[in-house]
C-alpha cells in the first residue's frame, strides 16, 4: 500500500513537472480552441527551455551569427523593427518583413504566403534560406550534437542526448507555443478587469465596423489571405500566396497579420513599407484603389474622419501587451547560453 501511495505521489509530481496542459497554463479563457495538436508534441518544462535556448542560439545559422531572435526580438513582440525586410547572415536582406510570433497555437498557416502548414516545420524555412540563416537542419543537428551545451538539454527534454531534426523542430515549437499574448488592456476589458476610456470605446466601435472582419477578435486576425490593395513592390515583385498555390485569385494575397502588439511591431505590411500607424490608416482611408483583385470588403474604402482615426488608434494601442514583451521567461536564456559556447 505504501509503495502504491508512493508511486501515486511520485507520478503526480512527475505530471506536475513534466506534463504541461496548454489549456490550463497558457490558453486564455476568452480565446478559441487552439489549432495546434498538442497530443503530438506535449509541452514539458524541459522541452520549452530547450526550445528557448535553440530560439536564441546563433548556432542555428551557417556562420553562427544569426538566431531566430535576431529577426524575432522579444522587445518587438517577436517581430523586428530595425529593418523593413528581414536581415540574415552576411548582411543579406530578404524580401519580407519579419512577422510577429504571437499566439501561434491558434494559427494553421505560417509565413506571409502561408507556405508552411505546421508550426513544427516553420523553422526549416529560415534555417535553410540563404538570405536568413543559410544553414540546413542536418547541419544544425550536427553542430548541436557536437556542442557541450545541448546533449544534456536534449536528454532532459527527450530522454536521450541524441539530437534529431524532429526533436529540434518540436522543441522550437514548444517554446514558440508559449508566446501567448493575452495580457493587454483589451484582454482585461474582456475579462471584466478594466474599462476602456471613452475614446478607446469609440475607437472600438470604429474597429468593429471597419476592421474586425479581417482582423477578427480576439486573435485580431482571421488567418486568411487577402489582397489589401497595396500595389506590388516592383523591386521585390512578391506575388504573395500566388507563389504557393499558382492560383491567379491568390495574386498579391498575403496573410492578415494580428494587430496585437502593433505598438511594438512596426514597420507594417508584408514588405514593411509603412513605418507608422498613420501611414497604414492613410492607405485604408485614402489610398485604396478599387482594383479587381482587391478584397471585396475593401471596395468601398474606409471613409473616416480625423477624429475617428485618432479614436481607432487609441483602441489599437489597447492591444499592447507589455507584460508579454517584458516577460523574463521569454527572454534570452542567459543561464543556458551565456559563456557556454
Amino acid at each position: 500500500m505504501r509503495i502504491a501511495a508512493g508511486l501515486f505521489l511520485l507520478s503526480m509530481v512527475m505530471i506536475s513537472w513534466i506534463g504541461l496542459q496548454f489549456d490550463e497554463v497558457y490558453s486564455p479563457p476568452h480565446f478559441p480552441k487552439p489549432a495546434y495538436q498538442f497530443e503530438e508534441n506535449p509541452l514539458t518544462r524541459d522541452g520549452i527551455q530547450l526550445g528557448r535556448a535553440l530560439f536564441y542560439d546563433n548556432l542555428l545559422s551557417a556562420n553562427n551569427m544569426v538566431s531566430c531572435a535576431s529577426c524575432h526580438s522579444v522587445y518587438n513582440a517577436f517581430a523586428h523593427t530595425d529593418h523593413a525586410l528581414s536581415h540574415g547572415i552576411e548582411d543579406r536582406i530578404g524580401k519580407r518583413n519579419a512577422p510577429a510570433l504571437i499566439n501561434l497555437a491558434w494559427q494553421k498557416r505560417f509565413m506571409w504566403d502561408g507556405a508552411i502548414h505546421h508550426l513544427d516545420m516553420q523553422a526549416l524555412a529560415p534555417i535553410s534560406h540563404r538570405d536568413e540563416m543559410g544553414s540546413s537542419i542536418a547541419e544544425v543537428t550536427q553542430k548541436l550534437q557536437a556542442s557541450k551545451v545541448y546533449p544534456p538539454l536534449f536528454e532532459a527534454a527527450w530522454g536521450s542526448p541524441e539530437v534529431t531534426g524532429e526533436r529540434v523542430l518540436k522543441s522550437l515549437s514548444q517554446f514558440m507555443l508559449t508566446l501567448v499574448s493575452a495580457g493587454s488592456k483589451y484582454d482585461r476589458v474582456k475579462l471584466h478587469q478594466a474599462q476602456f476610456t471613452e475614446q478607446e470605446a469609440r475607437g472600438y466601435e470604429v474597429f468593429k465596423a471597419h476592421c474586425n472582419s479581417c482582423h477578427t477578435e480576439p486573435l485580431f486576425t482571421s488567418n486568411e489571405f487577402k489582397n489589401n490593395g497595396l500595389p506590388v513592390n516592383q523591386a521585390l515583385n512578391d506575388m504573395g500566396r500566388y507563389g504557393i498555390t499558382q492560383n491567379i485569385d491568390d495574386s498579391l494575397c498575403f496573410k492578415v497579420p494580428t494587430l496585437r502588439n502593433l505598438k511594438y511591431t512596426y514597420p507594417y505590411m508584408h514588405d514593411g513599407r509603412f513605418e507608422t500607424l498613420s501611414e497604414v490608416l492613410r492607405h485604408y482611408t485614402r489610398n485604396l484603389r478599387n482594383t479587381a483583385k482587391q478584397d471585396a470588403q475593401l471596395s468601398q474604402g474606409f471613409p473616416m474622419g480625423g477624429n475617428a482615426k485618432v479614436d481607432l488608434t487609441a483602441f489599437l494601442l489597447t492591444l499592447s501587451d507589455s507584460a508579454f514583451v517584458f516577460n523574463p521567461n521569454l527572454a534570452f536564456p542567459r543561464e543556458i547560453l551565456l559563456n557556454n559556447h
Binding site: Q37, E40, N41, A115, I116, H117, H118, L119, D120, M121, L124, A125, I127, S128, H129, S136, I137, A138, T141, T164, G165, E166, R167, L169, K170, S173, I244
Partner: peptide, 24 residues
C-alpha cells in the same frame, strides 16, 4: 502524414527529403 508535424526516422527532415521553402 504530411500535415502531422515534425517526425523522426526516415521522415526526419535531416534526410533532405523535406522542402524548406514550403511545407511538404
Amino acid at each position: 502524414i504530411q500535415t502531422a508535424g515534425a517526425m523522426g526516422g526516415d521522415l526526419d527532415p535531416v534526410n533532405g527529403m523535406y522542402w524548406t521553402w514550403q511545407s511538404g
